[in-house]
Each structure stands twice: as structure tokens, then as C-alpha cells.
Amino acid sequence: MTYKLILNGKTLKGETTTEAVDAATAEKIFKQYANDNGVDGEWTYDDATKTFTVTE
């Protein structure tokens, strides 16, 4: 399945997608991606749209 991440960081904003077997796997990938890019904030997930959002 395709999952989407919306980044609302102070210095980085944008979107990315990943292919993952489930939401938990996608979350791990996205949290590593956000960490690698210096984004740390409040996480939400919308199962209907398979979208994670992180807001600093």
C-alpha cells in the first residue's frame, strides 16, 4: 500500500510517499525520514487517506 507523509516543519515543508505492508511499517519509515531531516513534532494519522502528518 502507498502511504503519504505531510511535513509541516519549521524549516522543512512538503510531502513524500512510501510503499509499506502496513501503517506501522510506514510510520517507522516516515519517523526516520523526519528525524533525518530535523523535523520533530506532533504526529497524526488518517486511516481513511493513509496519510501521516507531522507538525512542529
Score class of each variant (00 low, 15 high):
Q32P: 02
N37G: 05
T53P: 00
A26G: 02
T17W: 14
D36M: 13
T11F: 14
A34V: 09
N37R: 14
G41T: 02
T16E: 06
A24R: 11
T18E: 04
T44Q: 10
Y3H: 04
Q32A: 11
L7F: 10
F52T: 00
A24H: 11
K4P: 01
K13A: 08
Y45S: 01
V39M: 11
E19F: 14
Q32I: 11
K4G: 04
Q32T: 09
D46V: 06
D22Q: 03
Y45D: 00
T2A: 07
W43H: 00
K50P: 00
T2P: 06
F30I: 01
W43I: 03
T2G: 05
F52W: 07
A48L: 15
K50T: 04
D40K: 11
A20D: 03
K50F: 11
N8S: 09
V21Q: 11
E42D: 13
A34W: 03
E19R: 09
T55S: 07
T49K: 08
D22F: 04
K13R: 15
K31A: 06
T44F: 11
D46P: 00
T49V: 06
I29D: 04
I29T: 08
E56M: 08
T25R: 06
F30Q: 00
G9H: 06
T18A: 11
T11G: 11
L12D: 05
T16W: 15
L7Y: 12
E56S: 09
A24L: 12
L12A: 08
A34F: 03
K28H: 10
D47T: 09
K50V: 04
E42Q: 10
T55R: 06
K28P: 03
A23L: 11
T44A: 13
Y45V: 02
D40P: 04
I6E: 04
T49A: 06
M1T: 15
G9F: 13
T16V: 15
T18V: 15
V21S: 13
Q32N: 07
Q32M: 10
W43Q: 01
E56R: 04
G38H: 10
N37P: 01
K13H: 12
N35K: 15
K50M: 10
Y3K: 01
K10T: 09
T25M: 10
K31Y: 06
N8Q: 10
T2D: 07
K10L: 13
V21H: 09
I29P: 01
A24N: 09
M1A: 13
T2Q: 11
I6R: 05
K13T: 13
Y33S: 02
I29H: 09
E19G: 06
W43F: 04
E15Y: 12
L7K: 02
N35M: 13
A48Y: 11
T25Y: 08
T2F: 13
A23I: 11
Q32L: 09
D22R: 03
Y3G: 01
A23R: 15
T53E: 06
Y33G: 01
G38D: 08
G38R: 06
G14D: 08
K28G: 08
G14M: 14
G14H: 11
D47Q: 11
K4I: 12
N35Y: 15
T17E: 13
T17A: 08
T16P: 03
T44M: 12
V54F: 05
K31Q: 08
Y45L: 02
T16R: 13
E42K: 10
T16L: 15
F52Y: 06
M1R: 09
T18D: 02
D22G: 04
G41V: 02
W43G: 00
N37A: 14
K13V: 10
L12P: 04
G14R: 13
K28W: 09
T55M: 08
G38F: 07
K4E: 04
L5S: 00
I29Y: 10
A48I: 11
I6L: 07
T18S: 06
A26T: 01
K10P: 10
D40G: 09
D36T: 09
D46W: 04
T44I: 09
K4L: 09
I29E: 06
K50R: 15
T53N: 05
A23H: 11
I29N: 05
L12N: 06
I29G: 03
F52D: 00
E27Q: 13
G14T: 14
F30S: 00
T55D: 07
Y33P: 00
K28A: 14
T55P: 01
A26K: 00
T16M: 15
V54Q: 01
T25L: 07
E42M: 11
G14A: 13
T16K: 10
A24G: 08
W43T: 01
A24Y: 11
T49D: 05
A34H: 01
Y3P: 01
